[in-house]
Amino acid sequence: MNTLPLKITRAVLCLVVSPLLFAAPAQAQEAAEGERLFKARCATCHTTVEGQNRVGPSLAGVFGRTSGSVEGARYSNAMKGANLTWDEATLETYLANPRGVVPGSTMTISVTSADQRAAIIAFLKAQAGG
């Protein structure tokens, strides 16, 4: 059997291995973009600091949380009764049109770009440590 020249073997290995190495940084990049978007679009009303409620509730630990449940935070009556569990799927539909999902919500902004929603959700998920 002919052995491949070392150069070609190395090149092939690089091509195979590098996507695996880049997977984690790509996710990190999405979360970094999400942080930038959070500051631009969300930070007017929300923080990711536990206990720091502003116009909207703190989003620290929002993943897996039931809607309208942060102690001491201000919620519209609509949100208090919405009974959603926040995860990738519910956040994706909600952020696209908050008042479509929760009529009567006082969250009047929306994130119309799917890419931006994904980045923000990645950032919020990273805040929870996973």
């Binding site: 007017t44 009303c45 116009v55 201000r74 519209s76 006082t106 009047t108 902004i109």
Partner: peptide, 10 residues
């Protein structure tokens, strides 16, 4: 705070 989207009920 951006006041354009903030209902005064909030």
């Amino acid at each position: 705070t951006r006041s354009c989207g903030l209902p005064i009920s909030a």
